[in-house]
Design a protein around this nucleic acid. Structure first.
Lengths: 127, 127
DNA sequence: CTTGACTCCGTACCATGGTACGGAACCTAT
DNA sequence: ATAGGTTCCGTACCATGGTACGGAGTCAAG
């Protein structure tokens, strides 16, 4: 597949692919004819990058994980470490978001049009 | 309180306060003597900014909310709208993070040192 | 009344994660 | 074989949310 097809399959822009290549997250196949052809492994990596991002990994960390994927025992330990650290961060973040959601719900309730009372935006976040 | 005390109370750097001032999120009191003195209202706004950020609002949106806080009926409607939109985004984000967490848990499990099997980093995210 | 810390302010710089530009080469369908 | 769309690549630019610098002024304690 061409870079355009890869981009489409990964639901990103062509320029984003090139950006990931510059970061070393996706390889740069040799040209076949005048054009570089990408395979399913590239798409797999691309998808992993996007999934990793939603997990909150930085591109640098994702790059490390991609390298570790091929690795041996040392890689295994490090990958596990990264995963556990991120899991803890996610747990904390999820808790934060739950609290934020509750505050927003309060805000929306108190600012409903039917309610004639005050609409205390700051107070909704108990600040 | 001085800007340094405000920063400390808000657990941010002095430069961050100044940055927020430039963005209009926090006021710039007139000088008393040679120095600007901040009050509890400033701290309240500062705390709201940080809370808003954890809720995923951009600084621009937070600025709008701060302006709306003083407003009338039109403000109420808009504030409610922003809150509901953000709530939906949060629900989606929380769901994503839950999935990501599950993937990480799988990754950590499969890459445990005691396990002699493969440590399929990419596969943990089913990419 | 000096010394050291803090403040003020403008401006510059930074990291992250992209997005855009533009000219040359190439590929495909008509 | 030629036009229109892609690709290639280097380089520039962008938004967001800060962080740092540097010189002049100010304040507080000894």
């Amino acid at each position: 597949m061409t870079i355009g097809a890869l981009a489409k399959a990964g639901v990103v822009g062509v320029e984003t692919i090139r950006f990931y290549q510059r970061k070393g997250l996706i390889g740069t196949p040799t040209r076949e004819g005048g054009v570089r052809r990408y395979g399913s492994e590239d798409l797999r990596r691309l998808r992993f990058v996007r999934q990793g991002q939603t997990a909150g990994f930085t591109l640098a960390e994702i790059g490390e994980l991609l390298e570790l994927d091929a690795g041996g025992d040392r890689a295994r330990t490090r990958a596990r470490e990264l995963a556990i650290l991120r899991m803890r961060a996610l747990d904390q973040r999820i808790a934060e978001l739950r609290l934020a959601r509750a505050a927003l719900e309060k805000l929306a309730r108190e600012c409903s049009a039917s309610d004639a009372g005050p609409c205390p935006i700051l107070a909704s976040f108990n600040v």
